[in-house]
């Protein structure tokens, strides 16, 4: 009885700010609602029909997938590499770790402002450095043209979120018993063989979890893309979360916006169920 009373506040808040909005989102997606007045009429599945018949939804879904796959891939590769590096004894290791982790904790707004300044086409240091080193002949328009805009947000996404992978992998690396490496060395394994035969199999489980979590979070990323490019040029970098925002507050079609959100949620559910299954298995162990 006491146990139920202790959890009651949590459950009440959950119902008010999560369960109710979730149900309400599905309900709202069946209406045609004008955002400024919030008045609307029932239209059934018309919003979904319009969405799936039009090109914009599919384009945004495609963009979301491109963004998620590319930035996730970079995050994992950079994250594992950096974790392996920070696992070694280097001078001032604690400071090095803090510096690597910092981008993850800094606000997206700060990250975006800094990168937009670095990317600035006239005075940005990035164009300047690349021209100075001979990589570029002319200053590059990093955010205003394609495919540069997509490449830019993917890079910034990788920079901002790879520390998450570092944290997870580093924690796991510290628990791999040294004997495994000693045994492999006695068996004549070189550095690379030790990595593929000892380290990677040990990291497999945590990598699975990290990839699923990051896939879910990258898929729903709004702040970074919205603030970097606003979805532009035109809709070339518009992902589904940006489309939701645009429909609701740019085009004042609240009903259609919730339909996009619900459709997006349906796609994400696949990853979420995979992740929940995985965690369920680990709890059972």
């Amino acid at each position: 009885m006491l146990g139920v009373m202790l959890i009651a506040p949590c459950v009440l808040i959950f119902c008010a700010v999560i369960v109710y909005p979730l149900v309400s989102a599905v309900y709202l997606s069946l209406f045609n609602i004008f955002t400024p007045t919030l008045k609307g009429n029932f239209v059934g599945f018309q919003n979904y029909a319009d969405l799936f018949a039009g090109e914009e939804f599919w384009r945004s879904l495609f963009n979301t997938l491109v963004w998620t796959v590319c930035t996730l891939f970079l995050q994992v590769v950079l994250g594992v590499a950096a974790a392996l590096m920070l696992h070694q004894a280097i001078v001032f290791r604690a400071l090095a770790r803090s510096l690597i982790l910092f981008p993850y904790f800094v606000s997206t707004v700060v990250a975006v402002l800094v990168w937009r300044w670095l990317f600035n086409d006239l005075y940005g240091i990035l164009n300047h450095l690349m021209m100075w080193s001979g990589l570029l002949q002319m200053p590059l328009d990093w955010l205003g043209s394609m495919p540069n805009a997509m490449v830019s947000i993917v890079l910034v996404g990788a920079w901002k979120y790879f520390p998450f992978v570092v944290i997870a992998i580093l924690a796991r690396l510290q628990t791999i018993p040294d004997q495994l490496y000693e045994a492999a060395t006695i068996d004549g394994a070189g550095a690379w063989a030790r990595f593929t035969d000892v380290t990677l199999p040990q990291l497999k489980d945590v990598l699975m979890v990290v990839v699923l979590l990051r896939a879910i979070w990258d898929f729903k990323e709004f702040d970074l893309i919205y603030l970097m490019t606003g979805g532009g040029p035109l809709i070339s970098t518009q992902t589904l979360p940006l489309m939701v925002y645009k429909e609701a507050f740019g085009l004042d079609a609240m009903g259609r916006a919730t339909a996009v959100a619900v459709a997006m949620m349906a796609v994400m559910l696949v990853f979420m169920v995979l992740y929940l299954r995985r965690m369920g298995k680990e709890e059972a162990r």
Binding site: G3, I7, I18, L22, K220, V244, A248, M268, L276
Partner: peptide, 29 residues
């Protein structure tokens, strides 16, 4: 620390909501 019916489900639900995208909740909110 406590046992009551629905406890495991509740824990699962917490994890599920932890992954929910805010764009879905934001318009109803």
């Amino acid at each position: 620390r406590f046992r009551y019916p629905g406890r495991e489900r509740l824990a699962q639900l917490v994890l599920f909501t932890y992954l929910l995208p805010s764009v879905v909740l934001i318009l109803p909110l």
